[in-house]
Amino acid sequence: MSAAALRRLTLRVLELAGVLFIVSVGVFSLVVLLPGDPAVDILGAGRPPSEYAELRHDMGLDQPLHTRYFDWLGGVLTGDLGRSVVPPQSEVSDRVVSALPVSAEIAVLGLLIALLIAVPLAMWSAYREGGIADRIIGAGTFAVLSVPSFLAGLLLVMVMVNSLGWFPRSEWVRIGDGDLLGNLHHAFLPALTVALVELAMFARVLRGDLIVTLREDFILAARAKGMSPLRILFSDALRPSSFSLVTLLGLSLGRLIGSTVIVEYLFSLPGMGSLVVNAANQGDYPMVQGAVLTIAVIYVVINAGIDFSYGYLDPRTRRVHV
């Protein structure tokens, strides 16, 4: 690696660290915003005030905020997210580790489904710009975007689960339990619900970029070589048209991991969204902090990865090594 590239990478990492620092401060300060008294939560009401004070002292809650922040950060950096203040006072990291794969799976699967459908739709639309297919796809994606996703999910549940019985409604099957098919069977509908809105966005954004690319001279040159339209769409037009799509994909992935609460409720999934909402309702601040911080870190890391992928998408943005 050249010195310049090394410097760029170092700068990048410092920048990331800065962003993560700000995120951690933000997440920590949530504790101030959450209502309730942890000591009361743990001991229950009706105890002598001295007991509460003692527990608060033991938990370090009587320390100034910045001391508490650095204590917490020290724990986080060693992998200790603390303990829930709500009985049974489980380890925050245990709960996060069990909820995260559920959300991640739904998000990733949902985005895969969305891409699988959106890319061909966008290509067809762009290739036949202004044609009947383009108009139908345009109207369809617009309609999907204007329907709230919980409504789409409800419809899916009613039709596919209740009426047709194609999909189970029972307990979630964990991905590690060896029953991959059972897991996918459970994950498909929530993923599809998530996918609907995303695919509509993806298709519209990619269509617009493809239309611009298809007007480029190099597309005409590829046609003049005798390449088939399908081949040109995939091997010449797609990559230069995918900047907005990839950016959107990164944003969606980060967002979906943390905020598919509605879908999680609808399909009773034990994911991150429900974890955060339940914890917030119970005033379980260590749980909220740990879960939100995890989501934020994932979000930041994914989008940093997306930034790096631009170099692959467009070699002109890479440094030239002579």
Binding site: E216, D217, F218, L220, A221, A222, A224, K225, G226, D236, R239, P240, L313, D314, P315, R316
Partner: peptide, 18 residues
């Protein structure tokens, strides 16, 4: 490509940048 081929005006835009 085999029977007839074309050379375009602007070499800056007639090659695919990626």
């Amino acid at each position: 490509g085999t029977e007839v081929a074309m050379v375009f005006q602007d070499p800056m835009t007639s090659l695919n940048p990626v």
